[in-house]
């Protein structure tokens, strides 16, 4: 198999805070192949977004990348200088943010904000850039695209703005799109439209995508593979189908069980007991053990390694769940 487009190897992103060192991302490894959608799943505070920002080199002090490699297309981009990194951002790797209401600059027109990407990363002349912006807006489903170029963000609804943000992300033909909770801030009806749009765009352009979300339902619809994060570590990864059907890690099981189902309306929704532990005070052992029904004395002594369990599944658990029948 060809080398993956993106290969994270033991990524460490740490934040130095007054309360101590926060290992927001603690030795995360996974890869993304060209044309593939990888779902990055976990609860809030699990380090998902930080991974996205780390890849783009947008972690601000007091945070820093403390170790590991971010190999994109064969080279470690985590070691690049700011100037070189600027050529990666927006051109090789683009990002879609969580809240479309705030990710567009309120004082510039949509057209100008789109044009900015093309001015930075292509040699097209003004007319060609404009044509491309109009076509891109049409591609993301904005009607009357030409007149819309002169509109300001506040003249768009949330869903429309997210379409614009996606258009901007796709504009320069990036090979990797990092989508950080792209639908969380949107109405449910708009959510599925946006997801379909993103999947179609990825398929058409052959780009790869990292879909960061807390919503396993979204992942199961969209992603080819899933990486489940807990307290900055990968606890499980594998093909979406296998992870959804029969996860090996109790945390993934818990996440799956807490998705409401229309068929068992009568029952109380299951949830994972407890809360995410304080990431600064994690000692030895598995960080999920306090909330895990299957925890044994061993779990408090040694933290489990991420190892192959069965099929495509790797899990970091001393006592992985058996395959469901």
């Amino acid at each position: 198999m060809a080398e993956p487009l993106l290969d994270l190897r033991g990524l460490q992103t740490h934040f130095q805070t007054f309360g101590g060192l926060v290992k927001a991302v603690d030795g995360v490894s996974f890869n993304v192949k060209a044309g593939e959608i990888v779902g990055l799943v976990g609860e809030s505070g699990g380090g998902k977004s930080v991974i996205g920002f780390s890849i783009l080199g947008l972690v601000d002090p007091p945070g820093r990348i403390a170790g590991g490699e971010i190999r994109f297309d064969g080279r470690d981009i985590s070691k690049l200088g700011e100037r070189e990194m600027r050529n990666v951002r927006g051109r090789d790797i683009a990002m879609v943010f969580q809240d479309p209401m705030t990710s567009l600059n309120p004082v510039y027109t949509i057209g100008r904000q789109m044009d900015e990407v093309l001015r930075l990363h292509t040699n097209l002349d003004e007319a060609a850039r404009r044509t491309r912006c109009i076509r891109m807006l049409e591609d993301v489903g904005i009607s009357g695209a030409e007149s819309r170029l002169d509109a300001y963000p506040h003249q768009f609804s949330g869903g429309m703005r997210q379409r614009v943000v996606i258009a901007i992300a796709l504009l320069a033909g990036s090979r990797l799109i990092i989508a950080d909770e792209p639908t969380t801030a949107l109405d449910v009806t708009v959510q599925s439209q946006i997801l379909k749009l993103m999947r179609r765009q990825v398929q058409e352009t052959g780009a790869a995508m990292i879909l960061i979300t807390h919503d396993l339902a979204v992942v199961s619809e969209m992603a080819d593979r899933v990486v489940v994060l807990y307290c900055g570590k990968v606890v499980e990864r594998g093909l979406t189908e296998e992870v959804i059907r029969s996860p090996a890690h109790p945390y993934t099981r818990g996440l799956l069980d807490s998705i409401p189902r229309i068929t068992d309306r009568q029952r109380r929704l299951r949830q994972i007991p407890g809360t995410v532990p304080d990431i600064r005070t994690l000692g030895a052992g598995c960080s999920f053990r306090g909330r895990c029904a299957h925890a044994q004395p061993l779990c408090a002594e040694r933290s489990p390694e991420l190892v192959p369990v069965r099929g495509s599944l790797d899990a970091a658990c001393h006592f992985p769940l058996q395959e469901a029948l």
Binding site: L56, N87, N105, E116, L120, V165
Partner: peptide
């Protein structure tokens, strides 16, 4: 603000 981060993610100087 997010739009500053978004501008950085575009590769602006």
């Amino acid at each position: 603000q997010d739009y500053i981060r978004f501008a950085r993610a575009k590769g602006a100087s």
